[in-house]
């Protein structure tokens, strides 16, 4: 969502040198590495599913696709706000950027609450971490994503601190935090497709 542009460095506090990616290139190394790790998790999931397709299909029926869709929309909306935050910061509109960062947090928080509610619902119906292989993967993938999202709040807090302090305001750090948030969103879309959609 955050486009690559050579004009991004105009904002106050950022270097004027031309950059090829938004934020620190180091964060992109993290994105790449996490993508590899999650690809490995997804591969194990797909192979396990291929071994016992009936178990996976039957258990998958107990998940509410509408909840998954709502979760996805919440995170996509949060990504939209974090992109708007970056754009506003580039234009020097720090107040608007901060508001967008808080809106990102709000949608992220609603996602967290929704996810906990979904877990509680599943556990209430007797589907726990050890019920079968599908539910083991369901809780594992959603929980590891949940932890990534919690770390995302730390990243957003860092971005807000940058935006609200005139002495700081590093565009690079704001974009680095936004990149992390987009990564979580990207990973969720893949998890959603695997757990809720792929039948």
């Amino acid at each position: 969502m955050t486009s690559i542009a050579s004009t991004r460095s105009r904002a106050h506090g950022s270097p004027e040198t031309e950059r090829f990616v938004p934020g620190q290139p180091d964060m992109w190394a993290f994105v790449l590495f996490e993508a590899f790790v999650f690809t490995a998790y997804f591969t194990v999931y797909v192979f396990s599913r291929a071994r016992t397709p009936d178990v996976f299909r039957q258990s998958q029926m107990h998940l509410d696709l509408r909840v998954g869709v709502v979760n996805t929309l919440l995170l996509l909306t949060s990504s939209l706000f974090v992109a708007r935050c970056v754009q506003a910061a580039r234009e020097g509109s720090y107040r608007a950027a901060t508001t967008n960062a808080f809106l990102t947090m709000l949608f992220g928080s609603v996602f967290l609450v929704s996810k906990v509610r979904e877990w509680a619902m599943e556990i209430g119906q007797g589907f726990t971490f050890t019920t079968d292989e599908f539910f083991s993967f369901y809780y594992f993938l959603t929980a590891i994503h949940f932890i990534h999202l919690l770390i995302g709040f730390v990243a957003l807090a860092v971005a807000v601190r940058q935006l609200t302090s005139p002495a700081r305001r590093s565009q690079v750090i704001v974009e680095t935090c936004a990149t992390y948030w987009h990564t979580i969103d990207f990973l969720w879309v893949l998890i959603f497709a695997l757990l809720y959609v792929m039948r």
Partner: peptide, 22 residues
């Protein structure tokens, strides 16, 4: 700084070991 982020990746893979107790 990328090594800092690699530490985060490593830390997250340690969390994944927790189900081994179950």
């Amino acid at each position: 700084k990328w090594f800092g982020y690699l530490n985060l990746c490593n830390a997250l893979t340690e969390v994944v070991v927790a189900p081994a107790w179950i």
